[in-house]
Design a protein around this nucleic acid. Structure first.
Length: 831
RNA sequence: GGGCGGAUAGCUCAGCAGGUUAGAGCAUCGGCUUUACAAGCCGGGGGUCACAGGUUCGAGCCCUGUUCCGCCUACCA
């Protein structure tokens, strides 16, 4: 073990130096290592979010949410849990591809798959290192030996095994059907990848006509799709259109004709009450197409251009096509009206391009048939804060599509699948050949197709949705792919899943799906959802928006502890504005802590021993009893708050206690007994000093322990450089959370001490009024009270009142006239 | 359209099984420097708790409605 030098404390706390030194100390001494062989302690396992390393720079919002989870984890560690706290890097999939494409201005169509993957791997490496450095400097206490990267061998193997298992359980199937498609990224997507965007549009009233010559107006925002129109719909209750029952409607510009159909979903009051249904303008078109067996006229290709079925518009992209078609309709005098409107359109959440529907073969995980199960699962989790559960429930109940896990991209985990070149029967890899890339190796086991005995195969080119891997994080952590992994019983289900709110519908939901399908159990017990970091104007911080504050800069200027202090200000689940003043307040707290401990350190003698006598057996006077009572009460509350993930309240009450009770009052009341003054009237001064030092040692050490989860660096620095003279253990973070000492609680001391505090407050006011500084020695302090009980109390407190008010003498007299907060007591003083 | 969160001092936020006179930090004003800390200490001023009703002996907190802000969700093409 590395030695830590015991030194006297310098005048000021050099956090830059100290934080670097301590981060190194933690690493070299493996302070945060998980002990797999320890069977004495319970395990607390954390399903840490793997951030996209391709974003390169994290902002203070990330620092905030990781810190918030970490407060709880550090607390649990001190409560004696064996902590399993890994760090993953999410470096596979579309986010990384998008990042690489942008950074190197790559066109997916013009680069080989291998080259592209090389770029991704390179960026991934750089990103991971950047992240790791930042987490270390922020004091995130993960066990780095438990790191994983979602593109590494174990993760690929895990995803592929998951695929094979679910396929065997008939929960995965390949279907050729209309699917959400991003024309910009040229890939299919899942429902969870879609965001909505309000955008202005135009509702065109277009004149159609029936074969019998009747003119009909149909309103649509997507005239470019008229070539894909396969039916015209009306509401079955709409008397106006019942007569069209056996009619066919001619499509303008195309001349094709389509049937008239009826469906209750058609809003009679919208437009003319007639609606065109296309292949496929939106999810509702897809539903009608499926339910009513409509024709299929696909006119959009994978790149978002119109194809040959669109006739003269072939090769034109959708936006252009809209203009051209509207123009042509207008020339034929078929546009009867235009109404501006704002409508919500679905966009791809990674690139903001409007999504379309096209039909291709994709792999789907069945989820729609199990919605009830997943809703039920949400109830099995303990949500912090509880209202976040609603987000999950809403999402599950609104699911309309099975989970499409195929992506027509390059960089991701390959499917362990080949297809028979003759009959297209899929052939899956065996588990012991994973991970496998079908583009590189042929199917080893299946020398021939099980269905038609053909011997040639076509590899699956698609890669898996990135969430296919991320949803396996509890399994990756538990080494599920390794035979007889003892971790599956040790850390699974995981104790805590901390994460951001916007990925409830993806990471959280998909993980629940996978866990239930693979094990029948929930993947974790507790869910902790953090809010967002906002900029100082209240807008969500984001890299792409450019309104982010770099955590490295904040740490450099104010220290990691100060940044964490800011992060602790928001209640869990609530957004937090970045406010430099608050960070500066954190630094102010550090300096105060430093100096408060320095006061203790500079006043102990060589023979000081805090454990000579048990703290409970020392015959403390009223002031120390009050201090200890206050501390124990704070300890009890802070513990309660932390148990329910209310870290911000825990820190707040501790800070309040530290400032108001410990520093501003306790230390001020007793400090002059440490002054080397001749002729002091305090009797038994050395004994009084000893008791005070014992109380200070006890309270300051235990306050540091309560601060430790929040301010890991300064608490460690003080622990190692001073307290470790008397304490065992190589880190404050491995020390035990203070036990509640009920024997130190004397509730009556609070009431009695209030008398002294009222007098002290008024004495301070008097001094201010008289322009006297607070340590100015006064000759006499006069106190007037007619209450016999109060006078008894004053006599008990007299020595402390004299000390607190820096008086030479206390006289109970009727001279006093300055009111105190206690209406029965007046004071005055004589310079 | 439905839902969730928020609205408290100039600013950022606490507060709650409903209980005297609503708190903190910052900012502001005044005072104080040998004796842990001037990146400090002491003190002062500052609030119709978004609005309107209601329940209650008593409401920032509970109920009803309204208005703003943020978010989630939704097939009005």
């Amino acid at each position: 073990m590395q030695k830590y030098e015991l030194i006297g404390l310098p005048r000021s706390y050099n956090y830059k130096e100290a934080e670097k030194k301590i981060a190194k100390y933690w690493e070299e001494n493996d302070i945060y290592g998980f002990d797999e062989d320890d069977n004495t302690r319970s395990v607390f396992s954390v399903d840490t979010p793997p951030p996209y390393v391709s974003s390169a720079h994290l902002h203070t919002g990330h620092a905030m949410s990781y810190s918030q989870a970490e407060f709880i984890i550090r607390y649990k560690r001190m409560k004696g849990f064996n902590i399993f706290y890994p760090m993953g890097f999410d470096d596979n999939g579309l986010p990384t591809e998008r990042y690489v494409e942008k950074k190197y201005k790559i066109n997916k169509g013009k680069i080989s798959r291998e080259e592209f993957i090389d770029y991704c791997l390179k960026e991934t490496k750089i990103g991971a290192q950047t992240y790791k450095n930042l987490w270390k400097s922020l004091g995130i206490s993960v066990d780095w030996s438990l790191s994983f990267s979602t593109i590494d061998e174990k993760c690929r193997k895990t995803s592929q095994k998951s695929f094979i298992e679910l396929y065997k359980k008939k929960l995965i199937e390949r279907r050729n059907e209309p699917i959400i498609w991003c024309p910009a990224c040229r890939t299919s997507l899942a429902q969870a990848d879609i965001a909505t965007q309000e955008s202005p549009g135009i509702l065109y009233d277009i004149e159609f006509s029936s074969l019998s010559g009747e003119k009909l107006i149909i309103s649509t925002t997507r005239p470019e799709l008229i070539g894909a129109c396969v039916a015209v719909y009306a509401n079955p209750a709409d008397a106006r259109y019942l007569r069209l029952k056996d009619e066919r409607i001619k499509i303008p510009l195309y001349g094709r004709d389509v049937p008239v159909k009826y469906d209750e979903s058609v809003d009679m009051s919208y437009g003319t009450g007639l609606m065109m249904v296309c292949t496929w303008g939106d999810a509702e078109d897809v539903r009608k197409w499926k339910e009513h067996n409509l024709d299929t006229v696909i006119i959009i290709d994978e790149g978002g251009r119109l194809n040959e079925k669109s006739g003269q518009y072939k090769g034109v992209n959708i936006r252009e096509a809209k203009k051209l078609i509207v123009e042509d309709l207008k020339q034929n005098n078929l546009v009867k009206n235009e109404n501006r409107l704002v409508h919500t359109i679905g966009i791809h959440d990674r690139c903001d391009a409007p999504v379309e529907f096209i039909q291709t073969s994709q792999w789907f995980i069945n989820i729609l048939d199990h919605k009830d199960e997943f809703t039920f699962a949400g109830n099995g989790l303990t949500w912090f804060p509880s209202f976040m559960k609603t987000r999950y429930e809403e999402w599950v109940s609104n699911l309309k599509w099975d989970w499409n896990i195929s992506r027509q991209r390059f960089y991701g985990v390959p499917f362990p699948v080949w297809y028979c070149s003759k009959c297209a029967e899929p052939v899956l890899a065996e588990e012991d050949e994973l991970p496998v890339d079908p583009l590189v190796s042929p199917p080893r086991r299946a020398a021939q197709c099980p269905k038609c005995a053909n011997k040639s195969f076509i590899p699956e080119k698609d890669v898996m949705d990135t969430w296919m891997t991320s949803s396996m994080t509890p399994f990756i952590n538990a080494s599920w792919v390794e035979k007889d992994s003892s971790l599956m019983t040790k850390i699974f289900p995981m104790s805590l899943r901390p994460q951001a709110q916007e990925i409830i519908r993806t990471w959280l939901f998909y993980t629940v799906v996978k866990s239930i399908y693979h094990t029948g159990n929930l993947p974790f017990n507790n869910v902790m959802i953090s809010g967002w970091g906002l900029d100082k104007n209240g807008k969500k911080m984001s890299k792409s928006f450019g309104n982010f504050v770099a955590p490295e800069d904040v740490i450099e200027k104010y220290s990691a502890d100060s940044l964490r202090y800011w992060a602790a200000k928001a209640n869990l689940g609530q957004d937090l504005r970045f406010n430099e003043e608050d960070v500066a307040n954190g630094r102010r707290l550090l300096i105060k802590i430093w100096n408060a401990v320095r006061f203790l350190v500079s006043n102990i003698d060589d023979d000081f021993d805090p454990y000579l006598e048990d703290i409970g057996k020392i015959g403390f006077g009223m002031v120390e009893r009050w201090l200890l009572t206050g501390f124990e009460n704070i300890l009890r509350s802070a513990g309660k708050y932390l148990e329910s993930y209310e870290y911000s309240s825990a820190l707040r009450i501790t800070v309040d206690f530290f400032y108001n009770i410990y520093c501003d009052n306790y230390l001020e009341i007793v400090k002059n007994i440490f002054w080397d003054e001749g002729g002091s009237s305090i009797e038994g001064k050395s004994e009084r000093k000893r008791r005070s030092l014992n109380a200070m040692y006890f309270v300051s050490l235990n306050i540091l322990k309560v601060f430790a989860p929040f301010l890991p660096f300064i608490t460690e620095e003080l622990f190692l450089s001073f307290y470790s003279r008397f304490e065992t253990g190589k880190s404050i973070h491995l020390s035990k959370w203070p036990e509640l000492r009920k024997d130190l609680i004397h509730e009556d001391s609070i009431k009695t001490m209030q008398i002294l505090l009222d007098i002290l407050e008024s004495s301070r006011k008097l001094r201010t009024n008289l322009n006297l500084h607070q340590n100015h020695k006064i000759k006499r302090l006069f106190i007037r009270s007619l209450d016999a009980e109060l006078i008894d109390a004053l006599n008990i407190l007299s020595a402390d009142i004299i000390s607190a008010c820096r008086a030479d003498e206390l006289i109970i007299s009727d001279l006093a006239d300055f009111p105190t907060a206690n209406p029965a007591i007046f004071i005055s003083l004589e310079k």
